[in-house]
């Protein structure tokens, strides 16, 4: 077939069209990436044991209980953090949008990794539980790069229970370009218990 200048232009345009189609559909596909990190796949396993909400309920002295299961390489350990102890760890701050607010909000708190280092540095699978009985299992190694924090403050103000406090696991979704809504299951609010289920070695 004879192919002149216009033919080449058209070929180029077709390529551009294909690229545009791909680009547009890439944007469209985003909501489809459904929670690739949550390790609920192993749903046959029953809920791990968890302690009751520290009494008196809502106190700031026992905000977070971190435990490692006896089967992990770290052995059976338990640490109870007060709000003050968590504030003394290196604090990280970022501003991000998320599903439950119309505008971007600023979150401040210690890294989840820093907290885990104190009890089991090689932690892999975690069980997270909140005061309102929500729970989720997470593969910590997979979210390591997202630098999840245990937010203590929102817009500079201490998180109260009615504002989903005292701890809210949060990721800088804007900074890490996480597709909208894809990690929503992970953002446990009113978090009070972390159990290390498995570790690396």
């Amino acid at each position: 077939m004879k192919c002149g200048k216009s033919c080449l232009i058209i070929l180029g345009l077709i390529l551009v069209l294909a690229a545009v189609g791909f680009y547009l559909s890439k944007n469209l596909i985003h909501p489809l990436n459904d929670s690739p990190i949550i390790t609920n796949a192993d749903s046959s396993s029953s809920t791990p044991p968890f302690p009751p909400v520290p009494q008196p309920a809502g106190n700031r002295e026992k905000v977070l209980i971190v435990e490692s299961a006896p089967s992990t390489s770290c052995g059976s350990k338990e640490l109870v953090f007060s709000e003050k102890q968590l504030q003394e760890l290196p604090q990280h701050t970022f501003k991000t949008r998320h599903t439950w607010a119309a505008e971007a909000q600023e979150f401040t708190g210690p890294l989840l990794a820093d907290v885990l280092k104190l009890i089991c540095p090689s932690a892999q699978n975690l069980y997270l539980r909140s005061l309102d009985q929500y729970s989720v299992m997470v593969n910590f190694k997979k979210i390591l790069d997202y630098e999840a924090i245990l937010a203590l403050k929102i817009n500079g103000k201490t998180l109260s229970i009615r504002e989903k406090g005292p701890l809210w696991l949060m990721i800088d979704t804007d900074g890490h370009k996480v597709p909208t809504r894809s990690l929503d299951n992970l953002f446990v609010w009113q978090l009070y218990y972390i159990r290390v289920l498995t570790s690396d070695e």
Partner: peptide
């Protein structure tokens, strides 16, 4: 206790 009730009230609010 009163505190327990307030705690539950806060959860409802959230």
């Amino acid at each position: 206790t009163r505190n327990q009730l307030r705690f539950q009230y806060e959860l409802l609010w959230s």
